[in-house]
């Protein structure tokens, strides 16, 4: 990933300009690959849309956080539940590849005098853009099957899943190569969100410690209840902050060392 005219911004020492230039460069790079943009839109829509239409028309008891047990349509459960899962999946993959493609150029930027914090900000901004796009597509697709009680909270839960897993993907990208990173991204999200946090199952005790807990519980609450427990919002934001700080420190150190 390259910055079009780094010299002027780097030499001027303006951190916000450097961050903006690096961010704009990353966005341009995504925009230059229309296949990738199409996949970011099509794949989440396909997974949620097709899956919810193939699930049989039956009902199941669902434990809704803060609202007790309700009997709901299976298609509705999966419409709500798949949204943060897809967000986490795309976020994790974007994180792995963002790290792998930007690592060397970011280190060069820092050697050339750019502030590491600005470069970090630009990379995190890119992850956030991917998260917002996937969130928009996923929530819109789910809405064709089921109308959630609190759509904005559902969108927030999905963005939270995309960001937390995006940051974890960045961390994975620091340690392993792309092949292993994709493997971890897939099985990490599947194990956590699809199996351990599955709202149709009795989650084990350790489920609370995993990154998918707050996003999935928030999504289920937003889908089937008007009252969303604030403690879940706090838990999700706290998890995001912790993962964000750890990732920022690891990334910062890798830039300095590189």
């Amino acid at each position: 990933m390259s910055v079009d005219s780094p010299r002027s911004t780097v030499e001027s020492g303006d951190s916000s300009s450097t961050a903006l230039a690096a961010f704009a460069s990353g966005i341009r790079e995504y925009a230059r690959t229309p296949v990738l943009l199409a996949l970011f839109v099509f794949l989440p829509a396909y997974l949620i849309g097709a899956f919810t239409r193939l699930v049989p028309a039956s009902t199941a008891p669902l434990d809704v956080p803060g609202a007790g047990t309700q009997t709901v349509e299976m298609a509705s459960v999966y419409a709500v539940f798949m949204v943060p899962l897809v967000g986490a999946l795309v976020g994790a993959l974007a994180g792995v590849f963002l790290m792998q493609t930007a690592r060397e150029s970011d280190a060069r930027l820092v050697v050339a005098g750019a502030n590491p914090a600005s470069v970090l900000l630009a990379r995190f901004g890119l992850l956030a853009v991917v998260g917002v796009v996937v969130t928009g597509v996923s929530v819109a697709t789910a809405a064709t099957v089921f109308g959630p009680e609190r759509p904005l909270v559902l969108a927030g839960a999905t963005l939270l899943a995309a960001l937390v897993y995006g940051l974890l993907g960045v961390l994975a990208g620091l340690v392993v190569d792309r092949l292993a990173g994709v493997y971890l991204a897939l099985f990490g999200t599947m194990l956590d969100l699809f199996l351990v946090q599955n709202p149709l199952a009795d989650s084990p005790e350790y489920a609370r410690l995993l990154p998918g807990h707050a996003p999935v519980d928030l999504a289920v609450a937003a889908g089937f209840s008007a009252d969303v427990p604030l403690s879940l919002v706090g838990e999700g934001i706290a998890f995001l902050l912790v993962v964000g700080v750890v990732t920022a420190v690891a990334l910062y150190r890798s830039m300095r060392v590189s």
Binding site: L36, F51, R178, V182, L186
Partner: peptide
């Protein structure tokens, strides 16, 4: 689709969808 990110995205989504439905964990007829 000879690009790593794009190819990985497609593979992950295809395999996810496939496994969800073929595994017997979800009731699909």
């Amino acid at each position: 689709l000879p690009r790593e990110l794009e190819g990985s995205l497609v593979l992950v989504f295809v395999s996810d969808f496939d496994d969800f439905l073929a595994s017997g964990i979800v009731d699909v007829d």
